[in-house]
C-alpha cells in the first residue's frame, strides 16, 4: 500500500522537473522511510540521486518497499494542473497498477496514469575521493555558467582552496570567472589539494537550470579529472544530488 499527501504541490513538481532533465522514465523506490530514485541518463554521462523523506509529506503511508516506474513527462503534465495552494494526494492502485493523483481545490480532480515496468538495475554511486569542496549560491553558479556558455561548450573548474575559477576557451573567444572568498556568490571553499576538471556545459547548464527552482544553495565537490558531485540543498527533508563525468583533453 502506498499513499501520500503533500500540501505544497510545487515542491513535488519542481523535484520531478529536476529529475526529468536527465531521464524520461524514472523508477522510484518507495519504502516506509520515504521515496528515492537513482538513475543515469541514457548517455551515462550524468546521474541523479534523489530522496524525499516521509517527513517531507503531510501524510505518508508505505507499508513495504515497492518499485514504481513512471513516465516523468506524463506525470509532470498532470502535476502542472495543480494550483498554487492545492493539496495533491497520490496513491498506487494495486488492483490496476495505476498511479492515482487527486487534487482538491475548488473541485476534486482525479487523474489516473499507468505505471511502467520497473528497471531492476541498481545503479551504484561513483566511488570518488573529493579533494575540493565549494559552496555557492545556486543563482550565482547559474549566472556564471550562462557567462561561460557564450564562448564555449565546456568549462574548466579550478580551485586552490582560496578561490574558485571557471574558465572557458572557444575557437576565438575566452571567458574567465573568479569567485573569491567573501564574495556574494561564494559561501565557502576548501581544498585538500589544488583541483581542476572540465565539464560539458550541455549537461551542466541543464542540470543547474532545472535544479535551481528547488534550491538556493549548491555544494560542488570535485577532484582533478574526476566526476563532479553537485548537491542542491532542498527545503524539505530530502536530497537532490547529481554526478557528472569530466571531459579529458587528449593530445
Amino acid at each position: 500500500m502506498f499513499r501520500v499527501k503533500i500540501s505544497n504541490a510545487k515542491l513535488l513538481r519542481d523535484a520531478i522537473t529536476a529529475i526529468s532533465t536527465l531521464i524520461d522514465e524514472g523508477t522510484f523506490t518507495v519504502s516506509p522511510e520515504g521515496i528515492k530514485l537513482r538513475a543515469m541518463d541514457p548517455s551515462r554521462v550524468a546521474m541523479v540521486d534523489f530522496t524525499m523523506q516521509k517527513t517531507a509529506f503531510d501524510e505518508y503511508v508505505a507499508d513495504e518497499e515497492t518499485k514504481i516506474c513512471l513516465n516523468l513527462s506524463e506525470l509532470l503534465k498532470l502535476l502542472k494542473r495543480a494550483g498554487r495552494d492545492e493539496a495533491v494526494e497520490i496513491q498506487l492502485d494495486e488492483n490496476t497498477g495505476q498511479f492515482v493523483i487527486t487534487m482538491r481545490g475548488k473541485y476534486v480532480r482525479t487523474f489516473r496514469m499507468p505505471t511502467l515496468e520497473a528497471s531492476e538495475d541498481e545503479v551504484p554511486t561513483p566511488k570518488i575521493t573529493f579533494n575540493a569542496k565549494v559552496t555557492l549560491t545556486t543563482d550565482g553558479f547559474r549566472q556564471s555558467l550562462e557567462d561561460v556558455a557564450l564562448v564555449s561548450d565546456h568549462v574548466r573548474m579550478e580551485t586552490d582552496g582560496e578561490k574558485m575559477t571557471m574558465t572557458a576557451r572557444g575557437d576565438i573567444m575566452g571567458a574567465n570567472i573568479e569567485l573569491l572568498k567573501g564574495s556574494d556568490a561564494l559561501l565557502s571553499v576548501e581544498a585538500k589539494e589544488p583541483s581542476k576538471s572540465t565539464f560539458p556545459l550541455s549537461y551542466l547548464s541543464e542540470i543547474v537550470k532545472a535544479a535551481s527552482a528547488t534550491s538556493d544553495i549548491v555544494t560542488l565537490e570535485f577532484s582533478t579529472d574526476m566526476p563532479i558531485r553537485l548537491d542542491f540543498k532542498q527545503t524539505y527533508d530530502g536530497t537532490l544530488v547529481y554526478y557528472l563525468a569530466p571531459r579529458i583533453e587528449v593530445e
Binding site: S43, R44, V45, T125, K127, P200, A245, R247, I248, V250
Partner: peptide
Amino acid sequence: PWHKTQRRLTSFLA
C-alpha cells in the same frame, strides 16, 4: 571530439 574527450560515469563506478 566529444566522443574522444567525454568520459562516462560508468568508468568511475565502484
